[in-house]
């Protein structure tokens, strides 16, 4: 399994940069789509029996519990990086594997956001890009491990989200990391 994981991480470098078409939405486009959504919205009448209500409520409570457990488990997994690097270290591979298992083993529709972070060294703009590359590397590794890409999103916080604010080597090492957050 470990070998497979390493191979998967290895091909990340080749896959990085294989771009798709830009998917940006300008404010104008968003406004248009919002207007369309409003104009298309029609009142929907549904005859619900008591049982249906109970079942739906039960399901949503169950899903909520599952999500809470997943969120908690994800938050305990942190992938750390070397100074000015965005490749996954050998020592961090089991953590990536653990996150992949957690996501794959959880049913339902959800999105896990991979948050790239940096230490305080470097310009902020470069650090935002470095944080993004850290998030992207782990995202690709998770996909290679069988995680559905649609369940993953990434963001970079650069150096603006430190877990440790002392100016020590231990702190800098803690801040060079990826966190995993379950989006509502």
């Amino acid at each position: 399994m470990k070998k497979r994981l390493m191979m998967a991480v290895g091909i990340v470098g080749f896959l990085v940069g294989c771009g798709s078409q830009p998917s940006l939405q300008s404010s104008q486009e968003q406004n248009n789509s919002a207007q369309q959504a409003v104009s298309q919205a029609q009142p929907v009448e549904t005859d619900l029996t008591d049982n249906t209500v109970v079942n739906v409520a039960k399901d949503s409570v169950t899903q909520q519990n599952i999500n809470q457990k997943l969120a908690s488990a994800l938050s305990q997994n942190v992938v750390h990086f070397d100074f000015d690097k965005y490749n996954i270290k050998q020592s961090q591979l089991p953590i990536v594997q653990n996150v992949a298992n957690l996501i794959k083993d959880t049913k339902g529709n959800f999105t896990v956001r991979i948050e790239g972070n940096c230490d305080e060294w470097g310009s902020d703009e470069y650090n935002y890009a470095l944080g993004l590359k850290r998030a992207k590397t782990v995202k690709q590794a998770l996909i290679d491990l069988g995680v559905d890409a649609k369940k993953l999103a990434i963001i970079s916080y650069g150096e603006s989200n430190p877990v440790c604010t002392a100016h020590t080597k231990e702190c800098w090492a803690k801040n060079r990391r990826d966190n995993f957050t379950l989006l509502p």
């Binding site: 940006l24 939405q25 300008s26 404010s27 968003q30 935002y128 890009a129 993004l132 999103a153 963001i155």
Partner: peptide
Amino acid sequence: RKRVLSSKGMLIVS
């Protein structure tokens, strides 16, 4: 305040 753009991951005016 006017919204100009949004994007995944990172968006900075350089």
